[in-house]
């Protein structure tokens, strides 16, 4: 159990509506565990797996919250309402469009986890193409496929209380988010560049010392510089940082001899449909086509 809130009661856990009148009663009885729901939309399940991969903390998690709806983890389902809903995946089908509205009604607090739910994900690349062409190319019987023209983030459909970035989300950030929600404090999720984390970790700069097209300077921190620490340039899976200066970094890439097409494709990945990356990739697409 998390600690009780201070006497002022300023930070109750979500869903804490129980009476405090029974002074002598055990604390567990005063505070029912908040009900957690975990949903999947169009996605690869990686972010839900990140939750299950919390390993050391998993037992603490199920001790602190009541897992009321989490089909990937347990078959048993409790009826809504839920205190916190974690949503993985983008809205890609007509059925999902309806379901997310119901999910919003069922959850007091709705948090998206991962690139798909937050930006539309890799499947949002269809938004620049004709989805019919993709369906025809991939499926033997395209007539059975009912899909939307676009794949869009959850926040394009319903109000979202908090968004956790990453493909997949970072264990530490997920644990921080849940811990913060449980005690009713603001999650400590930085929005600055990845470079800050990368330098703190002491990685050699892949852009400056190796000429790699690293997206770290425009990408939000949170992964702990996972790729740069392994000698791989950041490909922006945590999406754009606060106020990214995409055109300046793009100019550096062009000066290093990379094409506008390469810059466009670097930006149009897991978070390509998230606004600053979307605008940036559109800019380099126009440049690629000779339009300015």
């Amino acid at each position: 159990m998390p600690p009780d809130p201070p006497a002022s009661g300023k930070s109750p856990a979500p869903g804490n509506s129980a009476s405090h009148s029974q002074e002598e009663a055990p604390r567990a009885a005063i505070r029912p565990r908040p009900k957690l729901a975990v949903y999947k939309f169009s996605s690869c399940d990686g972010c839900q797996l990140s939750l299950l991969n919390l390993e050391d903390e998993l037992l603490d998690l199920v001790g602190a919250v009541e897992v009321a709806y989490f089909l990937e983890a347990r078959r048993q389902v409790q009826p809504p309402p839920y205190d916190v809903g974690l949503v993985e995946g983008s809205i890609s089908t007509p059925e999902e469009e309806d379901r997310i509205r119901q999910v919003r009604r069922d959850c007091r607090m709705l948090v998206t986890i991962g690139a798909c739910a937050t930006s539309g994900g890799i499947q949002a690349l269809r938004n620049w193409a004709d989805v019919g062409d993709y369906v025809a190319a991939v499926y033997a019987q395209p007539k059975y496929i009912h899909t939307l023209e676009t794949a869009t983030p959850i926040a394009s459909h319903v109000f979202v209380d908090f968004e956790l970035r990453g493909c997949p989300v970072n264990h530490g950030q997920l644990s921080e988010l849940v811990s913060a929600l449980l005690v009713g404090r603001k999650p400590n999720i930085p929005t600055h560049s990845l470079c800050v984390e990368c330098k703190r970790r002491g990685c050699a700069c892949l852009l400056v010392a190796h000429g790699e097209p690293c997206l770290g300077p425009i990408t939000q921190a949170g992964c702990g510089a996972l790729c740069p620490a392994a000698g791989r340039a950041c490909y922006g899976c945590f999406g754009p940082m606060e106020q990214p200066n995409i055109l300046s970094l793009g100019s550096r890439f062009l000066a290093d001899g990379r094409s506008a097409r390469e810059v466009k494709r670097a930006l149009r990945q897991f978070n390509g449909y998230l606004e600053p990356f979307k605008q940036g990739s559109d800019h380099y697409e126009r440049l690629e086509q000779g339009k300015h």
Partner: peptide, 13 residues
């Protein structure tokens, strides 16, 4: 400001 990425590298090093 047009060039600066506000990435913080200068302050880290």
């Amino acid at each position: 400001a047009k060039r600066c990425l506000s990435c913080g590298n200068c302050t880290m090093v």
